[in-house]
Nucleic acid binder design. Structure first.
Lengths: 195, 195, 195, 195
DNA sequence: CATGAATGAGTTTTCATTCAT
DNA sequence: AATGAATGAAAACTCATTCAT
């Protein structure tokens, strides 16, 4: 790693921690600079703007989550296991990389275009993954047959639901409490509530 | 309605529209004042701070949603119908009152205490409603038996999931596309994916 | 004059003095605020930006110069007298309102569009005035006949020349030295046009 | 040419292009460094400051213009021809070396002392040249007799006028339109001086 | 020789809030 | 009861310049 890259990484690390705690708006360049042990203007030597830093933080987290989740999904054998792997790994990772929460989730309705694009592209890739799992499950007859048109919507709805749940888990200290019992909940979702 | 109340209502109406479009941070007191046709400092005659205005907007929306949803739930007969009433009415209302989305959902992790409290209290009431539905369903044997300890968590997880879905629907133009087919999706969730 | 207008005038007055001495770039909002005895942010209550202040200063000066010069030109009887009135009054006024120099003249090649437009419109009006004088002189046979196509160019060249001279007079202390003998010089230049 | 000199020349070339387009203020050291294909701090190895670079650029242009113009003036036979040579060559050259315009002309009222001195010395030499032409014309009886005291002022005024015209020609696309008809215009102006 | 790295001191701008009237 | 006027504090961003290597 070049020195340049090393510093960029340091800056990102500092920024990540702050974004996680305070969000995009309430984190100032000053904050990041101090946390990184650099002068404020030094940040601008490495990144063109605050947005670009946020962008970089998110992108990094995004890639890591995608990689790990995909790997876990591949390893799983049945569709149900894949689905569980998908959700449980996402949660485990996102729990640590809560910065993602702000993009994957709310906060950013009114925000920089740059970031909106990021979100879209991330979402698209996630949807692909999820649809693949569902399709696979339908093929193997594990899952109920779903109309092709509905599959897109279902995947989207599920992704949204997962996000919502993940957000919920970040807040409070429910993470630990629920994190463990996730299995039970996933079972319920898979099998439905009805008797 | 006294004149004082009338003005407070006007201010709230203007603020609501702006919060919905631009969020808490990007909406300035200036914006609100202009939209309300008042002087900026006049706002301070009626509300102590920007936060308090946001607070008031959210509270109003909150109450309305709660009232309407609860009514619909009561009217429904079976637990499944109640659940569907809960979700579908929430979505219908929140679609119009998108300001709520920002508090019920993201954006505000880093935010004013005042608002955090609001969120908590709203959430608590929603949870009660949801748990009541689930309990009712279990009693009537419509729903599977769930451990009492798990019931809390399940309700919470479900609420989060709903929120996530609702957020997703706000974005894009998916609202219409999916809004109609919501039934199908709710069925799936109720019955599970497994064959 | 409303209080608002009074303050706007004060701000402009302070700004004008600074722009004249230090130019657009080297004059800061801080400078203007201090000179006006206001807080820096107060300026933004009255003017949206630094550019807008500069704009206002220039516009005011512009109008005044135009008005006075036009009046003097009208009063003069012969074309030659009109031409002399045009130049000598311009110089006299611009000597006091040197802020104009920066727009009428250089400094602003690379500048805000707002200001470029101002310059263009000012220039256009000046050109009209000058062309009117020349046309009048040609009609009355005072001046040599000039092709219509050339008239535009000649007026433009003359205007440029006047500007150049005006700029030159601002610098140094030549103003006084030359100002008086301006007549002689104008005579010399004018002879070229006379029949 | 030593390597050192070669690089200094490269830097100047890059800087010249930028100063011409964007002026002194809007051209940053960063810009120059990039354009020269060097590191920003490298510039400081060769030049002590931004001002010094600007200084060097102007000086070079200045010398060239002076040399060429003087040569053309010498070659011309009559005073009128000399005057025309003076103006037309200046314009031709300055058209290409527009950087000069910013010093010879406006922009720089508020500027570095270094540069003000440059301007003065350049101006002094130009004035000498112009006065020489005028004196020569008076001697040869081509031009009207002028009081010695007035000669200085006339030369100065003429120089200023030329500058103004030159500035005007740079702007717009008038250069071509007028550049050609310059003869006509010079004739008109010259008639004032001719006996 | 050359420069990557770093920054201090500024710059414009924003905005919630205050207060005299 | 209402607001015009004012602002402090902070924000993002700029840039000429320095310096260790």
């Amino acid at each position: 790693m070049t020195k340049d890259e090393a510093i960029r990484t340091e800056v990102l690390k500092a920024a990540r921690a702050l974004f996680q705690r305070f969000g995009l708006f309430k984190t100032t360049m000053e904050d990041i600079a101090k946390a990184a042990g650099k002068g404020k203007s030094t940040l601008y030597y490495y990144y063109a703007s605050k947005d670009e830093i946020f962008d970089a933080v998110i992108s990094e987290d995004m890639e890591e989550v995608m990689t790990v989740v995909n790997l876990a999904v591949e390893k799983a054998n049945s569709a149900e296991e894949k689905l569980k792997a998908f959700t449980s790994h996402r949660i485990k990772l996102l729990t640590q990389k809560a910065a993602l929460y702000s993009i994957v989730f709310g906060e950013i309705s009114e925000n920089p275009n740059l970031i909106k694009k990021l979100k879209k592209s991330y979402e698209a890739r996630e949807l692909e993954g999820l649809k693949a799992i569902l399709s696979y499950g339908i093929e193997t007859k594990e899952f109920k047959k779903i109309e092709d048109g509905d599959l897109d919507d279902l995947a989207y709805v599920m992704l949204c639901a997962f996000r919502g749940i993940e957000m919920g888990l970040f807040e409070d200290n429910r993470i630990k409490k629920i994190g463990d019992r996730l299995e039970i909940i996933l079972d319920l979702l898979a099998n439905g509530f009805k008797n």
